[in-house]
Amino acid sequence: MIEENDRILLCGRKREYFVTAGEGRFSTDKGILELSELVGKNAGDEIKTHLGDPFRIKIPRPTDFFSYAKRTGAPMLPKDIGLVIAYTGMNHKDRVLDAGTGSAIAAIYFGGIAESVVTWEQREEFASVCRKNINDAGLCNVEVKTGDVLEEKGVFDIVHHDLTITPEHIVHAFECLKPGGYLAAYTPFLEHTFTVIDTAEDLFTEVVCHETIGRELTRTKRGTRPSTRVCHSGYITVCRK
């Protein structure tokens, strides 16, 4: 059941809106929605605008936060986050260290899977946005810390880095990991990727680098073909202690 201040996705004909249940009104091109009507309803229920147009209620998932949450920069793409989860075997028993929180999109995905997540963001103004996004996602197992991740002294099953990486970050990740644990480092440029690989090979038992590529299909009346949009997004190096 939806409670006051819950984040909700309202879906109409060719329109979606990311709103907060509670006081106030929300104006659309189909009329005005009373947000108080959301409280007490469930996923799949409908509310109508003052003009009678219906909107169906959906409970947001991490994919919706990628699309609609407030951003502090460009987040990792879902396909890249999925590779981190898949190649580290992230599960409900894991403690995860995440660095370079950004908009907290990766932390929100991880928080829905892992036992707990500690995520570090250097800039306080970004960290405040992260905390709000995580709170909107209804996650109480994700902690946002402000400062340099090199200050972290905990022990973790998985370390994930999405930041301007240095050899010190790789050494620190190794020290934070349990035996058998994984480091997954996302890097946008080959130069940063080489930093990860060259440092990790002297520490970890396994080091594998993946170029992340994905391409959608475009289907029209003329036919179907791969999208012409750029399919490369970066590199993920997965290292096992």
Rank of each mutant, 00 (worst) to 15 (best):
L38D: 02
T72D: 02
P75C: 05
I85A: 02
L77V: 06
P78T: 01
E37H: 12
L77E: 11
T63C: 01
P60Q: 02
L83Y: 08
T49G: 08
P54K: 01
K48L: 13
K58C: 13
K58E: 15
D64E: 15
Y68K: 08
S67L: 15
F65D: 04
I81F: 10
T101H: 01
D53W: 07
F65N: 08
L51R: 15
K58R: 15
F65T: 01
F65H: 02
A99P: 06
P62N: 04
G82H: 10
G100P: 09
M76A: 12
D94R: 00
E37A: 14
T72C: 14
M76T: 12
F66P: 10
A43G: 14
D53G: 00
V84A: 14
P54Y: 07
F65Q: 07
G89E: 09
F65I: 08
D98S: 06
K41F: 06
Y68N: 04
L77P: 01
D64S: 07
K48T: 14
D53S: 13
S67Q: 13
R61V: 15
N91Y: 06
P54M: 05
L51A: 11
I47F: 04
A74P: 06
K79M: 08
K79C: 07
V96M: 05
G89Q: 04
V96F: 07
I81R: 03
D80G: 04
T49K: 06
L35P: 12
G100Q: 02
G40N: 08
P62H: 10
L83S: 00
Y68A: 00
G73V: 03
T63S: 14
A74V: 13
N42A: 12
I81C: 09
I81H: 01
P60C: 04
T88S: 14
E46N: 10
S67I: 15
T49A: 05
G52E: 10
L77T: 03
K79Q: 11
P60W: 04
P60H: 04
R61Q: 13
A99Y: 01
N91H: 10
K79I: 11
S67Y: 08
I59N: 09
F65Y: 15
D45S: 08
A69L: 05
I57C: 11
D94N: 14
E46I: 00
G73H: 07
F55I: 04
K58F: 15
L83C: 03
L35Q: 08
D64T: 02
P62D: 04
A86H: 06
R95T: 10
D45Q: 03
A69S: 15
D45F: 03
K41Y: 09
F66Q: 03
G100L: 08
S36F: 09
R95W: 03
G89Y: 03
M76Y: 01
K93E: 15
R71M: 02
G40M: 09
K93L: 13
